Computed example of a mutant assay.
Amino acid sequence: MIQLKEITKIYGKKNKTTTALSKLSLDVKKGEIYGVIGHSGAGKSTLIRCINLLERPTEGEVWVGGVELTRLGKKELQQQRGKIGMIFQHFNLLSSSTVYDNIAFPLMLRGASRAESKQKVDELLSLVGLEAHRSKYPAQLSGGQKQRVGIARALASDPDVLLCDEATSALDPQTTDSILSLLLDINRRFNLTIMLITHEMHVIQTICDRVAVIHEGGIVEEGPVSEVFLKPKHFVTKEFINRNSIGSEGVKLAEALSGQAWNRLIKITYLGAKTYESALSQVVKETNVNFAILQGEISTIKDVPYGKLTVSLEGSDDAVQRTIEMLKQRELDVEVID
């Protein structure tokens, strides 16, 4: 649905230039929620604004729905932009217009009749849960309500793609979760392709199918969220995960264990239904190895449960090694960490 091919974006002229994106490529499939995460200044906002050509790439191709946008004339580009909705970090609402009129604005621009606009806006107000706020102005709304107006407005033109530019970073955690739940519902209900950028791993973990990690204008790691989250390779990815989860306690654990004599320390990662199985206890009964759980976590990646355990194993070398091999045979990821 979205393809970026060798995108480069350079700001400035002659000797005073800044390269925001460099030969960046990615492919977003129809109907998926695709996340891009990175630190401030990594190129996230430039990337998402290149998709609807709010920022025109210096080099490269932008394909949306099978159409290469950089080759289009002004009128054709405007038509294609109607298929791309966008919501913003700071809402970008018309302060002098009501909730109803903000949502109706895209319909007015395309010349929809009053009856058509009313039917569409009423449907969208119901979808985002703002029926009782239709006559209010943005200043009378909470941050979460403003973002719901922004989402409804972005959906007014029945887009094929929804772009989210840090859509939850100005919201508190509880409101963030409600907005993420709404986006997930919209994705499933309409099979709408959603691409979002964020600096919050929690956002990626909660609703995304795949994720790309952007650093210094390029993609340094990409794949299914479960794979990237549980087996990060790049140091930037590890930073985000450690800051977001129990992994940040790893340093404290290492300090606490420093100097202690453990037979073997391992980290076991569970995914899916295996998260709730008693694999470890079953295996150690068979190998006659004792164990102690030093650290543990159970959570979800989108709808998929996962678990992480840091465990000390006590027993003969052969028995401990057999325990590790048997855990691996049960398709668990086992990492020796001492």
Rank of each mutant, 00 (worst) to 15 (best):
L171I: 05
G307N: 11
S126W: 02
E200D: 08
V64H: 00
S226M: 03
S312L: 00
G144R: 07
V236D: 04
S40R: 09
L21P: 07
K302T: 08
K5Y: 01
V67Q: 02
R81F: 13
L230V: 09
R110M: 04
S169V: 10
H39E: 07
V161H: 05
G66K: 08
V36S: 08
F91V: 07
E116L: 08
Q329I: 00
L26C: 10
A112K: 14
T198G: 04
T46S: 03
P305E: 14
M326N: 08
T300D: 00
I219S: 05
S316N: 06
V161C: 10
E32T: 06
H90V: 07
L72K: 11
E335K: 11
K74M: 02
H199E: 02
A115R: 10
G38Q: 04
E239T: 10
D101G: 00
S96Q: 13
Q80W: 13
G250C: 05
N244V: 02
E32H: 03
G38Y: 06
R148E: 00
V28K: 05
E249Q: 14
G35C: 11
K231F: 04
L332P: 07
I33P: 05
D318E: 15
S299M: 08
D165Q: 04
L182A: 12
Y306M: 09
E55T: 09
T198C: 02
L280E: 03
S316A: 11
V62T: 08
H234D: 14
K302D: 01
S169I: 11
E255N: 14
E221N: 01
L94Q: 09
G60W: 00
V211K: 13
S126L: 00
I194L: 05
G144D: 10
K146T: 03
I51C: 09
K136C: 07
N288Y: 08
S299C: 05
E32K: 10
Q260T: 06
P159S: 04
C164S: 07
E116H: 04
I246R: 15
E314Y: 12
K14S: 09
S245R: 10
